[in-house]
Design a protein around this nucleic acid. Structure first.
Lengths: 135, 135
DNA sequence: CTAATATCAGGACAACTGATATAT
DNA sequence: CATATATCAGTTTTCCTGATATTA
């Protein structure tokens, strides 16, 4: 089963890249947005640690989200080294209106090809697997 | 939920790369092995189509599996352009003995961190998602 | 001749490691 | 001075596109 999951992983990743069109976000970008929404503002280094990445690796991710107008950074008044990142109002509005979801290939596929009950099963499995990667 | 799945995908991919040690296989390599085991011998082009990749992209994957002694290629007697790939006896033995599974980080994590019932749920979700990527 | 297979060469991307500047 | 943050530069991996030789 682990092998099936591995195989699925590779194919899913390729499909996501192939089907991606402008406006779609990479898995890492989505993960960062979800974390900012859940935990509030954070610095680049904090986000990198939470994602299991190096600070140097998350910089381009942040840059992409900033240029898309989804997050914005402001210097931390208490610590001049840090830049506090937070979701923009435009991003919250974008998510609330569901436009983010409608533009997403994966979301469309999940809704079109799986019954609501099956979607629930996948959702539970995602929660279980999150426990593994979050250590 | 699609966003959660996307986020999980990125993190799982990073974890797999970080935890990989010699002997572990990449997701694509595993996928190719599974397909050869299920459908029997095939050519590189056939495998590439099945995986949703270009023939040029699968060549290094095959080369890695060949140098690991897991698959072997023989010229197709009926069509001089093709090379028929099949699992080696060593590979079948390796899988049968469970050594493949024991060396795999993901397998160990699934067994250690999820109950048998939870493993079943994940397995079912994998089957559902396979329908999406296989089109 | 056209189509399919394989392969060579170069490129894009997302992560990595190492080194450096700056602020605490 | 020691630590933490951010960033610059170069490397690796895995896939891609384009072009070419060979065989059916």
């Amino acid at each position: 089963m682990a092998q099936d999951l591995r195989a699925l992983l590779g194919k899913l990743k390729r499909r996501l890249r192939d089907q991606a069109h402008v406006g779609d976000l990479t898995p890492t970008q989505v993960s960062v947005l979800l974390r900012l929404e859940k935990d509030g503002a954070a610095t680049a280094s904090t986000l990198a640690r939470a994602e299991g990445m190096r600070p140097q690796s998350i910089a381009p991710v942040i840059a992409a989200l900033e240029s898309a107008g989804l997050v914005s950074g402001a210097p931390d008044p208490a610590d001049g080294r840090q830049t506090l990142l937070s979701l923009t109002d435009a991003c919250r509005k974008w998510v609330d209106e569901g436009r983010a979801a409608r533009q997403d290939w994966l979301t469309r596929m999940l809704q079109a090809r799986l019954s609501p009950q099956e979607q629930g099963e996948v959702g539970r499995a995602v929660e279980l697997l999150k426990r593994l990667v979050d250590d």
